[in-house]
Computed example of a mutant assay.
Amino acid sequence: MTTPASLGYRMPAEWHPHERTWMAFPTRNQTFATPELLHAARLAWAAVANTVVRYEPVTLVVNLGETKAAEEYVDGTVQIVERPLDDAWMRDIGPTFLVAADGRLAAADWVFNGWGAQSWASWENDQHVAEQVAGLTGAQRFASRLINEGGGIHVDGEGTVLVTETVQLGEGRNADWTKAEVEAELHAHLGTTKAIWLPRGLTRDYDEFGTRGHIDIVASFVRPGVVLAHVQPDPAHPDHTVCQELVAVLRAATDAQGRRLEVVEVPAPTVLHDEDGEPVDYSYINHYVANGVVVLCAFDDPRDQEAAAILAEAYPDRTVELVDAREIFANGGGIHCITQQQPRP
């Protein structure tokens, strides 16, 4: 069977040079249900796009007929294309781009079904976005049978992929698959050889509008052998124990090259609950690494600068830009969730 890996393709690490960043523009739906909510979301998404475009090209996919609306929010250097959209989480609905040593570009197109066929989600249009974006780039498309989202995987570029059990094997996704079957499908499309499984994600991610455990809010590689991990220092927050368990798994793990992982802990913001009294899942792990920059979630919190210092040390060749991510998190994700890198072949 011909697979991307058998043809020499692999998913490079996020710090690999980019050709551009892809994003999607919020459109009216159940999440952005009122003009006020939609406007606030568009301001937040645009702040990210306008930051990234100062470092690399950005292409913004907007719903049909909404180009003029988008132009009111984003910098004129942001390229805009129209395609039918349901939502605005390009990390999850877009393709996972792959490169080959000879310069070829490909794309893994996972099955997208609204984060496990959740009752509130719509994906009639979004299930086709990965194929459409791949087509716009000229990338060779490989359709996978795996129900997965870009936020459910994180790679080091040297053969290792991070995943969570509750996403890859969870209800509504691939509950009838074995771990071995999931790993085989991931390796065939990503060019990886070792999967490190975390048991779950953050507590809030299992609420009605959560992703049920995306990896990109709890752990991310910053270079081969080194992982940033979200930790909640406050015992009053339910993620305190969760994070201890996840860090223990990471510290005990080895990567595809046989290295024991070095884990750098990144403390959560000090705020523990939202205005409704629910525990927040604010996380600095959900940052985006682009050419010359790390776009880091900010929360108007005393720990913003501490996180910025950690990321600056992890990426000494990049500028750390703090962008307020509270409105993005209020809608179900973070900066990493709304961006998708197209690597430079």
Rank of each mutant, 00 (worst) to 15 (best):
A70V: 05
T178I: 10
V167T: 11
L146C: 09
A130I: 09
E36P: 09
V52A: 03
A229R: 01
S122D: 15
L64A: 13
D156V: 04
E72Q: 13
A121C: 14
P345F: 07
E208H: 13
V74Y: 00
G277R: 06
A298P: 00
V247T: 08
A256K: 06
A312L: 08
D234E: 11
R83N: 09
A69I: 15
E66K: 15
I215T: 01
V99F: 00
R20P: 08
P233I: 06
I153V: 15
G150C: 06
H237S: 04
T34A: 09
V163R: 00
N331T: 12
G114C: 06
A121H: 13
L85N: 02
W177C: 12
V62E: 02
L37T: 15
S283R: 02
H214G: 05
G76M: 10
P17M: 11
A253L: 06
K194M: 11
R259V: 09
P26G: 03
F329I: 11
F142M: 07
A47S: 15
D304A: 06
D75S: 14
T192Q: 03
G103T: 07
G159R: 02
P233S: 06
A195Y: 03
G210M: 05
A33D: 14
G65E: 03
A108S: 14
N29A: 08
F221A: 00
T31L: 15
D304L: 08
E245S: 14
P238V: 07
I338R: 02
E262I: 13
A175S: 14
L190H: 02
L228G: 03
D87T: 09
C337Y: 01
E185V: 10
E262P: 06
P95A: 05
L85C: 04
A308H: 04
C297M: 12
Q257N: 12
V133M: 09
H237F: 06
C243W: 05
V294C: 00
A195V: 15
G8R: 05
D87Y: 04
R104T: 07
R344D: 09
W123L: 10
A195Q: 05
R223K: 15
P12Q: 05
V323H: 02
V78Q: 01
I93K: 00
K179N: 11
T270E: 14
F32L: 10
R204A: 15
L322R: 04
E124I: 13
P12H: 05
S144I: 09
I215D: 02
P269N: 08
V247G: 03
Q232M: 12
D75T: 10
W22D: 00
L60S: 04
W89K: 03
A106T: 07
E245G: 13
P267K: 09
H240G: 08
Q79E: 14
F97V: 07
V161A: 07
E278L: 15
T211P: 04
L7G: 08
